[in-house]
Design a protein around this nucleic acid. Sequence first.
DNA 1: TCTAAAGCATACTAAAATAATAGACTTTAT
DNA 2: ATAAAGTCTATTATTTTAGTATGCTTTAGA
Lengths: 151, 151
Amino acid sequence: MRLSKRGEYGLRAMIALAEPEENGNAPQMMQIKDISAREKIPSKYLEQILLTLKNSGFLHSKMGIGGGYYLAKPAQDITLGQIFRLLDGPVAPIKCVSQIAYEPCNCPDERTCGLRLVMGDVRNAIANILDNTTLADVVNRQNIIRKQLYG
Amino acid sequence: MRLSKRGEYGLRAMIALAEPEENGNAPQMMQIKDISAREKIPSKYLEQILLTLKNSGFLHSKMGIGGGYYLAKPAQDITLGQIFRLLDGPVAPIKCVSQIAYEPCNCPDERTCGLRLVMGDVRNAIANILDNTTLADVVNRQNIIRKQLYG
DNA sequence: TCTAAAGCATACTAAAATAATAGACTTTAT
DNA sequence: ATAAAGTCTATTATTTTAGTATGCTTTAGA
């Protein structure tokens, strides 16, 4: 059940972009190279990923000197599930339980297929987490733990 | 978050082997070709998978004419998680939250890494289902639905 | 207005994983 | 003896993944 590097990098970048600046709370603008350096992501690869995120409406960008990327929407309006599906495809472990990419499996009887029933549960469990966790939730959680650990 | 064909075929085969015979409740012996035909799995590929399951102690076999495979343990003692991990590897979406294949991720601070926290939840959600569902549970569930649908 | 810094876009490629297929061997019932 | 079954290992074709490469466009500022 792996998350691809592509998905991992994309999620990391979006979380980084959702983190408020030290001084204020404004959604910050960051350059590819900043994210790349901080998250240790190959910058040319990250470029592709951010472009995809932009073309799908999750990011806005500013070109030219002093440019960079910033969230197209407030962090609480972007879920991890949206980012995941864009970069990694359907959440479902098996097509016959996918909401967005359904295909019949070739078991004798789909309705009573035990594997399908269980994988449906798995899909729902994953989707429940990813679709109900926003970038803001993640940042919040990070901050709580930081406080617990470092005061 | 895909389940590989290998994993899918292995799980289907194990579930088939856990289904009681029409007459009694004895764990049945089935031949590769039977499973292959019923579940529409390429038989040579299935052969490999069943061998792996056998060499890991989940199946026993009988060679020669009239031979076949049968569960090495009662169906309620084999979990889907065990089969999954054998054929598909770790359940965790990302190494740094894996119980059986941990590796550090290269985020700045692993303890406060938001992605890691969420993916830890995902891992636990998946593992909770797969490790607490036995072959017997699956067969049971199938039977309940069969009764509901076909009386 | 020139230039450098940034993002935009697409093409390409190396390596790994996946999903098989092939073929020769061993065991066992009849 | 032989045919039916599992055992074992090697090979292969395809796809996916993870990245590189290259040229283009936009923009700020000297």
